[in-house]
C-alpha cells in the first residue's frame, strides 16, 4: 500500500495547462471565458448549463445515438439494385483483406467512444443532480478527459458527405435517416462532452463521496 500523504490543495487557484501560469480564480458572468495572460489559452469558462439541462441534452444525445446507429446513413441504387449502409456496417467494411486492423480504430472513434462519453456523462450527471458523486466518479472523469480527442462524430459526418459526392457521379445516392441523427449527435456531443468537464468536480464539491462513512 502506498503511503498516503495529504497534499494541500488550492481550489481558489487555476493553473494554465499550456504554460503553467498561476492565476487566482474569479467568478465569471455567464458566457465569459477566462484566458491565460501569457499564452492566451482558455483557462476556464463560466458554466452556461445547469446540471438538469446538461442531463437533458445527454439523454437527447443517447436517443439520437441509437437512431444514428440503427438507421442507414446513405442509400444508393444502381440499375435497379439497392444498397444501404449504417455506421456500423461502414466500420465493418474496413475489416476485409490486409487493411482489416484499421476497422478497430474506425469503429472506436465513430461508435464506441461517443457511446462511452454519453453513458459516462449520463451516469455522472444522474448523481450530480442530487449533489452526489456517482460510484466510480474519479475514474469516470479521467476516462472522459482521455476519450475526448478520440471522439470523431464530426469527421464521420464529413466522411459521409464526401462519400455521397464521390458516389453521386455514377449511382443514385439518397441520404438515410441515420445521417440526420449523426448531424444532431455531432452538435449534442460538442455541447455535452467538449465543454469544461472539470466543472463537475466543483458542482459536486459540497457533498464529498466519503465512501467509508456511507456504509
Amino acid at each position: 500500500m502506498p503511503v498516503l500523504i495529504v497534499l494541500r490543495t488550492f481550489p481558489d487557484l487555476a493553473v494554465c495547462e499550456h504554460c503553467d501560469s498561476v492565476y487566482r480564480r474569479r467568478t465569471l458572468a455567464s458566457g465569459q471565458v477566462a484566458r491565460c495572460d501569457r499564452c492566451a489559452a482558455v483557462l476556464y469558462r463560466a458554466s452556461s448549463l445547469d446540471i438538469d439541462r446538461w442531463l437533458a441534452l445527454t439523454i437527447a444525445a443517447a436517443i439520437v445515438f441509437v437512431i444514428a446507429n440503427v438507421y442507414p446513413v446513405v442509400r444508393i441504387s444502381l440499375q435497379g439494385l439497392h444498397n444501404e449502409a449504417t455506421l456500423w456496417q461502414s466500420a465493418a467494411a474496413l475489416a476485409q483483406g490486409a487493411a482489416a486492423p484499421i476497422a478497430l480504430p474506425a469503429a472506436l472513434s465513430i461508435i464506441v467512444v461517443p457511446f462511452l462519453q454519453i453513458a459516462l456523462l449520463g451516469w455522472l450527471l444522474l448523481f450530480a443532480r442530487v449533489g452526489h458523486r456517482a460510484p466510480g466518479f474519479a475514474p469516470a472523469m479521467r476516462l472522459l478527459v482521455a476519450l475526448r480527442p478520440w471522439s470523431m462524430v464530426e469527421v464521420a459526418l464529413l466522411g459521409i458527405l464526401v462519400s455521397v459526392i464521390k458516389l453521386s457521379g455514377f449511382v443514385q445516392v439518397l441520404p438515410g435517416a441515420g445521417v440526420w441523427a449523426v448531424a444532431a449527435l455531432m452538435v449534442l456531443i460538442t455541447i455535452i462532452a467538449n465543454r469544461d468537464i472539470h466543472l463537475l468536480w466543483e458542482l459536486t464539491e459540497q457533498a464529498p463521496p466519503d465512501e467509508a462513512s456511507a456504509r
Binding site: N83, A93, L94, A106, W150, M152, I160, S163, K166, V171
Partner: peptide
C-alpha cells in the same frame, strides 16, 4: 489533427455501400 481520419472514413462508407 483528428480531421485527417476523414479519408479512412470515406473509404469505409464507400466500401460498405458499393457491394453489387
Amino acid at each position: 489533427g483528428y480531421w485527417s481520419m476523414l479519408d479512412v472514413l470515406v473509404v469505409a462508407v464507400v466500401a460498405a455501400l458499393v457491394k453489387f
